[in-house]
Each structure stands twice: as C-alpha cells, then as structure tokens.
C-alpha cells in the first residue's frame, strides 16, 4: 500500500534527498514491506532502463566525419572547445596504436 513515503522513493533511489530524509527513508524501507517491495521494483526498472537505453551506436564513418570537422583550422587552432572535444579522441588513437610497431 502506498504511504507518505511512496512519493519520495524515486528521489530516494536517485540519491536526490537531503541527508536527513535519506536516513529516514532508509529506516522506513527496512521496516515497511510494501515500500521494500516497491523499492526493489524501482531499482530493477532503473537498471533495466539503463541497459535498454544503450541502444544506438554511431557509424564509424560518421565519427570520422565529425572528427575531421573538429580538427583545428587556421583561425582557432587553440580553441579550448576543440581540445575538450578532441582530447579523448587523440588519446583513443594513441591507445589504439599501442604498442607502437618497432622497425
């Protein structure tokens, strides 16, 4: 059965309650079988959504196209966004080529 805690269960599981509320909810869930079952269902649903929503992979051609577009051009070679956007890409290429081929 729903009680005054039910409406807070999502925020509780999302870690969005203030510390005092979090503690109160913890204690309540341990003592209330209805909320405990509810929490279990919600946790499973959250996990299921997380796994189901990883669904679409970009095509590698598309990734390459965007990387080309983000290459520094004359004008903004030191654009900080470029470095933020491209930093990991460079790192990935480096890692992908590791270990370096020795002559």
């Amino acid at each position: 059965m729903a009680d005054e805690f039910t409406s807070k269960l999502d925020a509780y599981l999302d870690g969005e309650l203030a510390a005092a509320d979090m503690k109160a909810l913890d204690a309540h869930v341990r003592a209330c079988p209805a909320c405990a079952a509810d929490v279990l269902g919600r946790v499973q649903m959250k996990r299921a959504i997380k796994s189901a929503s990883q669904r679409y992979e970009p095509r590698s051609e598309f990734r390459a196209k965007i990387e080309r577009r983000l290459k520094p051009r004359a004008g903004f070679p030191k654009d900080p966004l470029y470095f933020r956007l491209a930093g990991i890409a460079k790192h990935r290429i480096y890692v992908a080529r590791w270990p370096p081929h020795l002559p």
């Binding site: 929503s53 669904r55 992979e57 970009p58 965007i66 990387e67 983000l70 990991i88 890409a89």
Partner: peptide
Amino acid sequence: MPLFSQLYNFAHWL
C-alpha cells in the same frame, strides 16, 4: 571526442 557516443545514442532515441 567525449560525449560523442552518448550524444549520438540520445539523438537517435529522440
């Protein structure tokens, strides 16, 4: 590119 795969996934969902 940070966020690239996630942004693409999100865009495809939308």
